[in-house]
């Protein structure tokens, strides 16, 4: 029931613990949490990852994705936190948490939230390392991951046959 888009670092462990306690009070029997971390390049060399977003649309898109998850699965609670701005390797970028009476709903909803926010929420990553800055290209695998959920919720925005 919560979506947060923010610049400041957050404490994943503390967020997960608070979510779990609230979910337990609400009668949930299962909690799934996931966090994404800024990954260094193989062998190192990444100085900074900067995330740009579209204020207004970002919150709207994430709320829409969360509402769709709640429509599809019996969730007691859901949380999405996503940062923007510059981050160093090892920093936490984002997290999702889902709570449900039973684990299958919590696991599936968490995967659904991740699949959709990777390709349908307006965030863009730019990596800087060795004096060069480069926008991260969208991956075909991420787009393909959406197809398993059926395409009614978020059809591919442009018919460009997998090109990205």
């Amino acid at each position: 029931m919560a979506v947060r888009v923010e610049h400041a670092p957050f404490d994943y462990g503390r967020e997960a613990a608070a979510f779990e306690r609230a979910a337990a009070r609400a009668g949930a029997g299962a909690v799934v949490t996931f966090c994404g971390i800024v990954r260094d390049r193989p062998g190192g060399g990444l100085d900074c990852m900067e995330i740009e977003h579209y204020p207004g649309m970002t919150e709207r898109a994430l709320a829409g994705i969360e509402a769709e998850a709640r429509h599809r699965w019996a969730l007691s609670a859901a949380l999405i936190v996503h940062r923007y701005g510059p981050m160093a390797p090892g920093e936490t970028i984002m997290m999702v948490a889902t709570a449900a009476p039973h684990r299958a709903d919590a696991f599936q909803a968490a995967e659904f939230l991740m699949d959709y926010l990777k390709s349908r929420a307006p965030f863009w990553k730019k990596e800087t390392g060795a004096g060069q800055a480069q926008w991260v290209a969208a991956r075909d695998e991420d787009e393909a991951a959406l197809s398993r959920w059926g395409d009614k919720a978020a059809p591919r925005p442009e018919g460009d046959a997998g090109k990205s």
């Binding site: 579209y54 649309m57 984002m94 990777k118 390709s119």
Partner: peptide, 30 residues
Amino acid sequence: RVALDQDLATMDAPLAGVREVAFFPPMTGG
């Protein structure tokens, strides 16, 4: 990619009534 008034849209979408158009590359969140 394009969004019309903060909803994803397609290049053949009509602009009637639209106030804000955004253009951007494929999204890379998560």
